[in-house]
Write a protein that binds this DNA or RNA. Structure first.
Lengths: 253, 253
DNA sequence: ACCTGAACACCGTTCAAGT
DNA sequence: ACCTGAACACCGTTCAAGT
């Protein structure tokens, strides 16, 4: 169907790395990870594979660029909820707490993964392939700046920021795709029915091997992904304040 | 080189799903994710592709099975450090705290990812593709059983266990592969030099955009992955006990 | 400097045919 | 029931050739 859709409509705009990455993200969003091929890309951009390879080294680099673009947009969000020191010095809104800032950044990443389900896998791949890339520092910095504003000794900045980033990525990665896979697996089925399916599957597990999972199976039914994600963030935040109190409690070995 | 290594040595053993998965894990360990192909697999098993497809539906299922096998072994570890109620009722060792149990399970997964770097990406892929698969319940159950032993109200079991699992997967995924990529990227370079490279790269970032990352760049130099991973686990554990105290503190909206 | 498009090596998967 | 292996469709990547 749609036999050879010629997309020569706007051959006007010159090809650029930016346009290629943009097309890649669109392709990933609409067709999934397996949908991003150089063939599909050339058709969409009305060009040949050689043209793409002029701007991008290979597919890995393209995936990294797509991931970075989406992450950059996600962590750069400075919503109304969080009032950072504004460029315009007038109207000094009451600055939000660093905790709220962290919640905001975390939710930004969470929502980004919901919008772009492929991000979960790509994030893991990117972070593991090159921690010195652009993706890691971007996320780390965004969280870290808020950690600095917390009451944490400088010697623990790295550990605390890392813990937060790790939780956010782990949770966003798993939680968020639930909603996506609910859509993907059964297009007509809504979220509630999807959760019912998972819940039922868990209740069907072996009672001897999976007592806990079975016990909480019904808690999954009504739960809200974002709410639970935030509850986890708060848990980590509570751990930070509990661990790094005013009085420097020496580690009692 | 090694022109057509015939592996007909032990054509004796019959092919089985188990042997295939085992070979797949070995291939992933030695040759990386891109090294696992049906061609390499058929050569290693001295068979044809059709034989493999008789036991395994497709590559995705094979990857899922390989992931599950490694995870099962990782969370099943019951080291001497943690004394669960033993099958043999004599010699009742002092039972370890649930916190220690959680640390043990977390470290087990951490170490598994260090030994099998491909696990980080696969875990993200597997968890996102099918939360109703075997991998998620396995990890969830292992952590959850220890959560139940903590002083947490039942209504929070699901949230608390999820938070722990998310941190562990996020942290293990990112942290662990650092050591692997250090080896992969520069075979002769040891870990200390690798950390130096990352640290130097972070120090070279834009001072305006990355003040925090630059500030902690030198903290990365001497840090121990496992130690930091455990510090994060303790942070979450501290948050759990701080949030769920004896006196049921009503949420003051 | 930027783009074209045929060509190549390789991959996952299928299937008629064997035992 | 289990295995063989040729064949197919498709993929990432290259490169001589154009402008």
């Amino acid at each position: 169907m749609a036999t050879r859709t010629r997309r020569s409509q706007r051959r006007t705009e010159a090809l650029s790395r930016e346009r290629i990455v943009e097309a890649a993200v669109e392709l990933l969003d609409t067709a999934g990870e397996s949908g991003l091929t150089f063939r599909a890309l050339t058709e969409r951009l009305a060009t040949g594979p050689g043209a793409i390879y002029w701007h991008v080294a290979n597919k890995d680099e393209l995936l990294a660029a797509a991931t970075d673009a989406v992450v950059a947009a996600a962590v750069a969000v400075r919503p109304a909820a969080e009032a950072l020191p504004t460029p315009s010095p007038e109207e000094p809104e009451p600055p939000a707490s660093p905790q709220d800032g962290i919640r905001t950044v975390a939710l930004g990443l969470f929502d980004a993964i919901v919008r772009h389900p492929w991000l979960a896998t790509q994030l893991a791949a990117q972070l593991s392939r090159s921690p010195w890339g652009t993706v890691t520092p971007r996320i780390f910095e965004s969280i870290g700046q808020r950690v600095r504003a917390l009451d944490v000794p400088e010697s623990s900045w790295f550990t605390v920021a890392s813990a937060l980033v790790h939780y956010v990525l782990g949770a966003a990665g798993q939680n968020a795709v639930n909603s996506a896979s609910a859509r993907a697996l059964a297009p007509g089925v809504d979220r509630a029915r999807f959760l019912d399916t998972v819940s039922a599957a868990w209740e069907g597990l072996d009672p001897d091997e999976y007592p806990f999972t079975r016990a909480v199976a019904d808690q999954i039914r009504g739960h809200d992904d974002r709410e639970q994600f935030l509850a986890g963030v708060d848990l980590v935040l509570a751990g930070i304040t509990a661990t790094h109190r005013r009085e420097p409690r020496p580690a009692q070995e």
